[in-house]
Design a protein around this nucleic acid. Structure first.
Lengths: 207, 207
DNA sequence: GACATAAACGAACGATCGTGCTATTTCTGT
DNA sequence: ACAGAAATAGCACGATCGTTCGTTTATGTC
């Protein structure tokens, strides 16, 4: 009961590492077996298919994500402090894996691979974006954001800044990536805080 | 001379489609051969290795990118109009391929695959970010951005918003993705336009 | 028409992929 | 100590991977 579960857990741990680095599709039965010093078929028996392995991998990562990123942020007072905590946790989560956030990697990996894995991933991503939305909502209620702030828009922009951080951090590793992300966050918070949006720039004024 | 070049071009075209959808690593000699109705070895002869094929793919995509995204934007008056043009072109380029922008896909695909391909891709990405930086610089000189605007920071935030668009567009396909990106762009332009940055939010006021 | 050059082919290679089937070992509860 | 269950191993399969080699077909030049 627990014997096999321990084994399975360490397999998933290895899988997480590969998935974050090379992508969820690159998590191979053979490589995992080699890592765990066991036979392919022995390892395979734990999961019933590669598809299932990938889903369990996402599920496992999702539990860690909820525990280490979302939940602790919800323990922080609503509003801007909570948002800061969420971002900090996300970046820590991202830095804990060799190849960065597994969900970002998996998202580009599976965006055009229809099936159960993509379905599951999509559901996770929607839940994540919904968390962002709800946290923005609670920031309004806490009085940190202005009443008419667009929560969906905030979720988009915050996630975008994290994706920017992720690419800078994993591909180019410029030294001041974290500063860039922090500055972007400050600007974002500023924009959602003040009074109603400033006068328009008139995009089509000249054409 | 031209006979083989035509063939090679259509092969690259197919490769671009696969790369944008499934990733640059998923561009397989066999699948390309099947697409082109020719033998694996016949196709392979055009390139001398898979690594080389991947690099030629990036190079080809880079030429298209320069021609269709960067160059036309530089023909638009410097400043905010040029920035708008660049973004429009980027989104059009991204939408022209089934799986979105090949560089975004390739970036997450090769971030942890050291070698010539990653080196080449990295150089392209740095060039792209440099373009963003220079366009911000010219916006300052045109008087559209404030004098002390941080061009590197602008490049980061603009690229981040595009990455956000890309994920929303390719994975989740929510209907209003383009509106989100546009709104983010407007907010970004507003932030770099006005006087010096507003008073701080005091990030650590409470801890 | 002979000849050089380039393009494409067919077959094979060793390796790895995911996945079955059948032992065999190892643990667990009594 | 022993039965039953759970975990692992061994082996094989068809498929596909990138790559090599030798040969054939097409193209252009004299």
């Amino acid at each position: 009961m627990t014997r096999g579960d321990d084994r399975k857990l360490s397999i998933l741990e290895n899988g997480l590492d590969i998935a974050s680095r090379l992508g969820l599709e690159a998590v191979t039965i053979g490589s995992l077996a080699k890592m765990a010093n066991m036979s392919k078929s022995g390892l395979f028996a734990h999961f019933q298919s590669k598809e299932n392995l990938q889903i369990e991998l996402l599920k496992y990562a999702g539990e860690i994500f909820s525990r280490d990123v979302v939940a602790p942020a919800l323990a922080v007072p609503a509003g801007i402090p909570r948002i800061r905590a969420l971002v900090e946790n996300w970046i820590r989560f991202s830095g804990a894996m060799t190849g960065g956030c597994i969900f970002v990697t998996a998202s580009t990996d599976f965006k055009d691979r229809p099936g159960k894995v993509k379905d599951f991933l999509l559901q996770q991503q929607n839940a994540w974006i919904d968390s962002l939305r709800r946290i923005a909502r609670s920031a309004i209620e806490a009085g940190d954001f202005r009443k008419d702030a667009d929560c969906d828009q905030f979720a988009f922009e915050l996630y975008a800044s994290l994706l920017g951080f992720h690419l800078y951090y994993t591909l180019l590793d410029s030294a001041d990536t974290q500063k860039r992300q922090q500055a972007a966050l400050e600007q974002l918070l500023r924009a959602y805080q003040g009074g109603p949006a400033p006068a328009d720039i008139s995009p089509g004024a000249g054409g």
